[in-house]
């Protein structure tokens, strides 16, 4: 005696789905957010004295308000920056506490990474990046990009040498840590100075 249930008409299902589809197409965006991630240093204490760093341990990179570059006192072009930074931060013999005369010193305390074959002395070299208030953001990002690229390439080389693959391909947390610690992102951004106006 069951009453016959009339079938629901599914013909308009497509229209409903289309409506939803168009709604989502309009309200959402597809762009993936990408960018260069950096960590800001904590604000300096009020009474802090200038930390003395030896000249050979610092690579000074200055960008002025006309987007011109100066590396260690000499005018330079952005296309050379990556090679210079690589040359500066290169750590050819990570197992030795000493470095050649014209290279930055090594840190006093070695790090122990059995994966890399024992004690490792990272370089003390620091890149000091200083920009003017009038520098364009585009140029600043270009410089940051070159610095990041140099460090990435150095890490790749080290990773290639010890693990036979590029740094980006490493999956083992321990290996990633070891490489990161051996070649740290040593970029120091100077306290801003107001020169040159807007």
């Amino acid at each position: 005696m069951a009453r016959q249930v009339s079938e629901i008409n599914a013909g308009s299902m497509a229209d409903i789905a289309f409506l939803l589809l168009i709604f989502f197409l309009v309200t959402t965006t597809m762009d993936v957010d990408t960018g260069i991630t950096r960590k800001l240093p904590p604000p300096p204490p009020k009474d802090q004295e200038d930390i003395k760093v030896k000249e050979r341990n610092v690579l000074k990179v200055l960008v002025n308000k006309n987007d011109r570059l100066m590396v260690n006192g000499k005018p330079d072009d952005i296309s050379n920056l990556r090679a210079e930074v690589k040359e500066f931060l290169r750590n050819p013999d990570i197992h030795s506490p000493n470095s050649p005369e014209n290279m930055p010193e090594k840190r006093k305390e070695p790090l122990n990474f059995p994966i890399l074959g024992g004690d490792v002395w990272p370089s003390k070299g620091v890149i000091s990046l200083k920009n003017d208030r009038g520098t364009s953001y585009e140029m600043y990002i270009k410089v940051q990009n070159e610095l990041a690229a140099a460090i990435r390439e150095l890490r790749d080389e080290l990773s290639q040498q010890y693990f036979g693959m590029r740094f980006g391909q490493l999956a083992d947390e321990k290996k990633i840590k070891a490489i990161q610690k051996t070649i740290p992102v040593s970029i120091s951004e100077a306290e801003p100075e107001d020169i040159g106006g807007k």
């Binding site: 991630t37 800001l40 904590p42 364009s136 953001y137 990009n145 807007k198």
Partner: peptide
């Protein structure tokens, strides 16, 4: 940040972020 912006305003923002302890930043780029 728009690419034609001058660093002055960006630096001010960064200083503020340092003050409040928001250290992790990301410069959005293509």
């Amino acid at each position: 940040v728009d690419k034609d912006t001058k660093m002055g305003i960006v630096t001010d923002v960064k200083q503020q972020l340092r003050e409040v302890g928001a250290f992790k930043i990301n410069y959005s780029t293509k």
